[in-house]
């Protein structure tokens, strides 16, 4: 039993596993992000990832027993990343209308809402947030128009767009926040992202500018970041070992 475990959790089969996973990753690059993501959300693939996380955990634990701490950090880190990802997927599957996971809100200036929507036209209700968002004002700023823009007869590219919102959480006075691209706002377990914006007309045919905010809750995020940290620490440790052993023996003992 112990011999079998030694053989199957050693570096030789692990190398083959790495290459098999690499081919799998290449295969998933072809169908495009959306279909690959949908494919990975299937129960079979989730079970496969769970199994992989378990394997990483076992290898990490064995590395601790053998005092190979670089290997331990690396493998436990990988296990944490995969487990965190699975937690996020689990939350998405078990999201309820009063505790939604992911959705978008489309707003014009002055509008207030706590509802999230999904679908290509954002017309399917996902649920209600534990706070409400009021769009005070949406801003679009462009770069200065240069000669290239004038020659092409177009506006200068957009430099920044942002939504100034007022967040109202129960038991707290309302406060103002700016949601920018690359600067999400964090409220009660949810990140609010500036996703996109566009032009439309209202019922009377007057032009309006709307903003699209995306709201996401991911309970596995901290575990994923913790996993990244462990994994990176392990890799630094591993690199340090490779430099240190140089000159003593080119054929060191396998882990």
């Amino acid at each position: 039993m112990r011999k079998l475990l030694n053989r199957w959790t050693g570096p030789a089969p692990a190398a083959w596993l790495c290459w098999a996973l690499s081919l799998g990753a290449v295969a998933l690059a072809f169908p495009g992000a959306e279909r690959a993501g949908a494919w990975m959300a299937r129960p079979v693939m989730q079970a496969g990832v769970a199994l992989l996380a378990l394997l990483f955990g076992v290898v990490g634990a064995r590395a601790v027993l053998r005092r190979r701490f670089d290997s331990a950090l690396l493998h436990v880190g990988c296990a944490c990343v995969l487990a965190g990802w699975l937690m996020g997927r689990h939350a998405v599957r078990h999201a309820s209308p009063d505790h939604p996971c992911i959705g978008s809100m489309v707003m014009v200036d002055g509008e207030e809402s706590d509802r999230l929507w999904e679908g290509p036209m954002l017309d399917r209700s996902v649920g209600r947030l534990p706070f409400s968002v009021r769009l005070e004002r949406f801003f679009v700023e462009r770069y200065a128009r240069n000669s290239d823009d004038r020659d092409a007869g177009r506006d200068a590219p957009v430099r920044e767009y942002r939504s100034r919102v007022t967040i109202t959480e129960p038991g707290r006075p309302p406060y103002v926040a700016n949601v920018r691209v690359n600067e999400p706002v964090y409220v009660r377990g949810y990140h609010i992202y500036q996703m996109s914006w566009g032009h439309s007309t209202d019922r009377l045919g007057r032009p309006i500018v709307y903003t699209v905010l995306q709201v996401i809750r991911d309970p596995g995020l901290r575990l994923v970041y913790a996993g990244f940290t462990l994994l990176f620490a392990g890799i630094l440790f591993f690199a340090w070992r490779i430099f240190r052993i140089q000159g003593t023996s080119a054929r060191e003992v396998p882990a």
């Binding site: 050693g10 570096p11 030789a12 692990a14 190398a15 083959w16 790495c18 290459w19 996973l21 690499s22 990753a25 591993f238 080119a250 054929r251 060191e252 396998p254 882990a255």
Partner: peptide, 14 residues
């Protein structure tokens, strides 16, 4: 993953 495999291979077979 290709490089991860390389380091595992080096550990396994020197």
């Amino acid at each position: 993953l290709v490089y991860a495999g390389y380091f595992h291979e080096r550990l396994a077979h020197g």
